[in-house]
Simulated assay, not measured.
Amino acid sequence: MLVIAVLLVVAAVWVWWTYPRVGNLLFALIATVEARRARLKEVLVSIQRMTLATYQGGPVSSPPLLLIHGFSADKGVWFGFARHFTADYRVVIPDLAGHGKNRFEHGADYSIAAQAQRLIELLDACRIDAVHVVGSSMGGYVATWLAAHHPERVVSLALIGPVGVLLPQPNEVEELVNQGDNPFLIHSRAQFDRFFSMTMASAPWIPEVLLAAEAQAYIERRDALAEIFSDFSGSPRLEPWLKDVQVPTLLLWGREDRMAPIASAQTWTHGIAHARLECMDGVGHLPMVEQTAQTVARYREFLNAQA
């Protein structure tokens, strides 16, 4: 009986210890499959002071398309979206510094201006003069900074639930941060589940083993994410520069977005007077994940209008 009890305890410990690691292996396998489906290859690009991990695909001679993920995410968030563009665009999807496969370095400067400068260096390294840019959440902050401060490098701008302006009223995330309970800085699985529920209104089904792995990754990255969040959230707000965005601009928003409330859209449309605002019902902060086909269709229509 004692032997059985010991074996059960050992089995329980083994499952607890390996479960997130199994999820990590599955994540890696899924990423490989999805990258192949999207006709993307992993490419390491050396820029000043660091190397950026990227996915790249599509004909080199085609119009370039730069996809920028949000805070705490990585380039894999664009798989489903990107595979609809690699046939006729040169698609470049970087992990921002401190994210994804890029090593976090304490004190490396993760402000919006610094992240934007790294992307300019990435474009230079890839010999890309000007690019269509799509940014999600914090990626929209970086994308807008590029369009305002480096207008010669941006052909068009698409912003998906962007952050970077003062909110007309505190939203759920801001209120939690002000209370000292930043939902991105996770200590437990319960906190991860709360955070995950805030990201999407209609999330695709994700196996429990993958959620466990992702929760563990957030817990392990907590200190790094805290520094990155401090740098990016302390960056200057965009209001003074929105008028400098002169390229065609699409604002795409989920009506159920809990991270970047749709109420802030009025600040963007006031600052970028020519911007085209489109809202998606029943969608949260990540339309390209929640409703990929609809997001692709709306962005395609935007691109075609420029032809």
Rank of each mutant, 00 (worst) to 15 (best):
V289K: 10
D257P: 05
A224W: 01
L211Y: 09
Q306H: 02
V209I: 15
L251A: 11
A297K: 08
N304Y: 08
T199Q: 15
E220N: 10
Q306I: 09
M280H: 03
P248W: 04
E256H: 13
A307R: 11
P248T: 11
E239V: 00
D223G: 01
R255F: 03
G254W: 02
Y218S: 09
E278N: 03
G254C: 06
W205P: 10
W241I: 03
S233W: 09
L252E: 05
A297N: 06
L286Y: 05
Y299K: 06
I219R: 10
Q216F: 00
I228D: 01
E301N: 14
E208I: 09
G284K: 02
F302A: 05
A297M: 08
I206F: 07
Q191K: 11
D281E: 11
P261D: 13
P287Q: 03
G234I: 13
T295Q: 04
L242Q: 06
D193T: 14
A213V: 03
S235V: 10
D223F: 05
E220R: 14
F229T: 00
L277Y: 04
P204A: 11
M200K: 08
S233D: 10
I262W: 09
M198R: 11
I272Y: 12
W253Q: 00
E301W: 08
W268M: 04
P204Q: 05
N304P: 00
C279Q: 15
E220T: 13
F192V: 12
R258P: 15
P207V: 04
P240T: 02
G234W: 13
A265I: 04
R221P: 00
R221A: 02
I262M: 13
I219E: 06
S230A: 15
L238Q: 12
R194K: 10
V209R: 11
V209H: 08
E220Y: 00
